[in-house]
Amino acid sequence: MPSQAANYYRPQTPEMAVELLANLQGAAVIGGATLALGKLGGGRPSHLIDLCDAGLDRIGWRGHHLSIGATTTMRDLRRHPELSAPGLAAIMAMAGHFEPLPVAAQATLGGNLCTGVGSLVAPLLLYEAHAVLLGPDGERHAPIAPLRLHPGEIILSVELEPGSPMARSGCQSLRRTPVGPALVTLAALVDGDQLRLAVSGIEAPARRLRDLEGRWDRRSVAQWAESIAHVVRPIDDARGSADYRRAMVGVLAERLLKELLPTELREVH
């Protein structure tokens, strides 16, 4: 295996990857390679540093954080037992968007975060997720929205707090074309009477709607949906107008909250 020849490299550790990145002009780190080799991203990098053997595809606990390795594929996310809890259903829903496309077996969490419009960002934000990065100056934690890598850094993992075992979450999105970018993605988590909300697609970067969050008060689902539609700052472009995106985040909110809220809260009014 020519792991150290010419312009394809397959480092065995993240540290080796960072060292290669520091020493190679025009190199790109690849997880699934869907961005670097795909023709959407512009020019082809001169060197590929393939992380597939760097041990970054693990999912496990690190303290009270659940750590998901950067090269975990969408398909592995869907299949992993640690992620089957109802509290993490929001992540599952978006990872599932890639099924049944074969790219699901190749596209990685790290790549999804790097695109800037990744469908996993909104659901991950529900769990106070941060990225763990490794660079020439060592390891650091960074927000995922927007994710800003310093030169020479790679993503090791994303760490999140899954919340209580009683939590329920979900995520819905709406697209102009079946596999095009989402006009609106809304993720929500209900933990007891606490509610968390995050949006992407409709805004860039994705964000938590912290102003609205907190205790589920005595408003109806429809009123909540209206509030959500009120606070977002929708993008307006040829794919979808701001009006439509705003109306749709309301529609998705109503659907999602009806699905997530326990009956006693849903039927307050």
Binding site: K39, L40, R176, T177, P178, V179, G180, P181, D237, A238, R239
Partner: peptide, 23 residues
């Protein structure tokens, strides 16, 4: 789809909307 500046928003077949088996 184009931006107001005349740039193409549509990146490829991914966005454009060629019908799939499921559509």
């Amino acid at each position: 789809d184009f931006t107001a500046h005349g740039k193409l928003l549509t990146r490829g077949l991914l966005d454009y909307g060629v019908p799939r088996t499921l559509d």
